[in-house]
Design a protein around this nucleic acid. Sequence first.
DNA 1: CTTGCACCTTAGAATCATTCCAATTTGTTG
DNA 2: CAACAAATTGGAATGATTCTAAGGTGCAAG
Lengths: 146, 146
Amino acid sequence: MATATQAPRHPAGLAQKLADSGLRSTPQRELVYDVLLTKRDHPTADEVFARVKPELPGISLATVYNCLETLVQCDLVRAVNFERGPTRYCPNLRPHAHFHDEVTGQTHDVDLPETLFAKLKSELPPGFDANAVEITFRGKAQSSAN
Amino acid sequence: MATATQAPRHPAGLAQKLADSGLRSTPQRELVYDVLLTKRDHPTADEVFARVKPELPGISLATVYNCLETLVQCDLVRAVNFERGPTRYCPNLRPHAHFHDEVTGQTHDVDLPETLFAKLKSELPPGFDANAVEITFRGKAQSSAN
DNA sequence: CTTGCACCTTAGAATCATTCCAATTTGTTG
DNA sequence: CAACAAATTGGAATGATTCTAAGGTGCAAG
């Protein structure tokens, strides 16, 4: 069998994180996570399905949805939504914003200083207690590097 | 005919704004807009439909969708999305953020200083040109006044 | 081991919001 | 009034996601 190119690309934290939640590590979950880490272009469930299928031809779309949901529950992946479009998935765990390119339809991560998120929460009127902030930009990006 | 209670609640700018876009003012459009202005609780299309129907029993859901879309096009109303839930509609045109109460499911407007929006855009890396920013909080609100 | 059982995966049906479509209705303009 | 464009309508169609029921899988206790 081939070797080098098949090694798991993720930091092996998956099995652990899953176990922490009383869940099992399965080939499907590993592969879905791998696919997200390998090409971080915020794929939809369908896109993940397409990327995963060649390696695991028997996998079903329902399972891809299940795996993605599981990864989100375990805080290994974030679900990203934009205007009723299909949900996209992002393995970037640092707090960051998203930029939606209106021309290409691509989604880019935008790192913002941690202080900004704090500042935003501090602007809330009294009585509002936020445990998450989401920031989304829409516009045009000089899509050079891709 | 009755008078006081039936007077249009909106600032009569509707017909004008529509005309600006080469569109007609219709009873359906007026009423949908009225409903949004009257109870600013970010209703879904279904909810708007329910509120509009008693006054115009023949109206169809498709028309409500059409009217809402038209109002959004004319910049009289904003469409607000949260995690793949049904689109909600908001006649507040000032730049503001939204707070989603995880307990009640309600959506609240949150006014933020204009400078914050500017600051956010200025944080974008070079090459990114945003023409809109969306800020969404999720958390718990002391739902007192409603 | 081998049986039990909880967890997983699977295919396909079901759901839900929204959009599309083709047929009327309405309004305006010549 | 006639002709045409813009709007509305009900129902069918779409697309993403979730549900359901039926098999797999794999560890754990005996």
